[in-house]
Simulated scan of single mutants.
Amino acid sequence: MSQAPVHVPAHVPVRRVGLVGWGAIGRVVGQALAVGEIAGAELACIVDNRPVTDAPAPQFPFEEAMRRCDLIVEAAGQAVVREWGERVLESGTDLLVASTGALTDQALADRLLKAGPGRVYFTGGAVGGLDLLQAVRGLGPLDRVVLTTTKLPATLEQPWMDEELLHRLRTADSPVEVMRGTARSVPVKFPRSTNVAASVALAAGDPDRVEVIVVADPAAELTCHVIEASGGHGSYRFEVRHRPDPANPATSQVVPHAVLRSLAAISGRTGQIL
């Protein structure tokens, strides 16, 4: 259900938003912006490599969007971050990244963090607890961080998988561990399914410190992410279970709403938990 439009105080500057991607995430974000759900933000245009006929804003090429907007929201995949991220920031436009999996490329991450004068932001997507993980790093490094992601087998199939692994996924009648590695190595193998791993790595401060376990479960009606972390200052456990998005089962229904929450924080909505 859509929220009522939010009153924008006169002193709040309005961010002109260019939305990249008109898919499962972009449609929800764009429609919410179009009806005024986010105080201080308005949808200025859509960027997509396909013709868009049902969007509530005009469609422009990427270069034109950067000229017209002061904030670009990426909701189209890691390739967009790699190709356009630095150019957006160097143009002076801010960038909100949903496909955080692109940042497992350390060189790219370093370039984005150094680029400017635009500012780069990242959304936490389908997982919680990242703010606390970032906060406890002020007490000292985390000694152990483990993310276990469980999804339906069909959403995890990848072109690089051999016939034996594909057969195990397609015939599984119980949970199957598909891959185990670091938050640097695993998202590369599952570019549409493990942005959460990269988000946890951002919060923990080191993708090589985060162990990621990917599990396929034919009974997983809900996508599950479990984060377990510990250090000399304490131990932490977060578990979330989400319904997959009907239009794109590789992502969770909550993801566009996480993007909207990030947009509200960037745009200065009061009452936000930061």
Rank of each mutant, 00 (worst) to 15 (best):
S174G: 14
F62V: 06
V196G: 06
L152H: 03
Y236T: 13
G129F: 03
A115Y: 04
L142P: 01
V214F: 03
A75P: 00
T194P: 03
T100H: 08
I227L: 02
Q3V: 11
A135L: 14
A34L: 13
S193I: 05
M179D: 11
L108N: 10
H257Q: 14
H257E: 09
L169C: 00
Q158R: 01
V146P: 03
L147N: 14
D131S: 09
R241Q: 10
K114L: 04
A24E: 02
V12S: 08
P218V: 07
T100D: 14
V136G: 06
T123F: 00
V188C: 08
D245T: 08
S252G: 05
L89Q: 03
P56K: 04
H242G: 13
G231K: 07
K189D: 07
A220S: 04
D173V: 13
L43I: 04
V20I: 10
R16H: 03
A44K: 03
R269S: 15
M161W: 04
P117I: 14
G234Q: 12
L112I: 06
V88I: 00
S2K: 15
S267F: 15
T155F: 01
A10G: 14
T150F: 06
P61S: 09
R27A: 15
H11A: 14
S252L: 13
L43W: 01
R67N: 05
A198T: 14
L222D: 09
F238V: 15
V255N: 14
A203W: 12
D54P: 01
V196S: 11
A183N: 09
G21L: 09
V120D: 08
G205N: 11
V136H: 08
H242E: 09
D173Q: 09
D143S: 01
D206G: 04
V80H: 10
L169M: 03
P58M: 13
V14H: 03
V28P: 08
A75E: 09
T223P: 05
L133S: 10
V214Q: 08
G231I: 13
S174C: 11
N195Q: 13
P13Q: 13
R170A: 13
G268S: 10
P58N: 07
E90T: 05
G232K: 09
V176E: 07
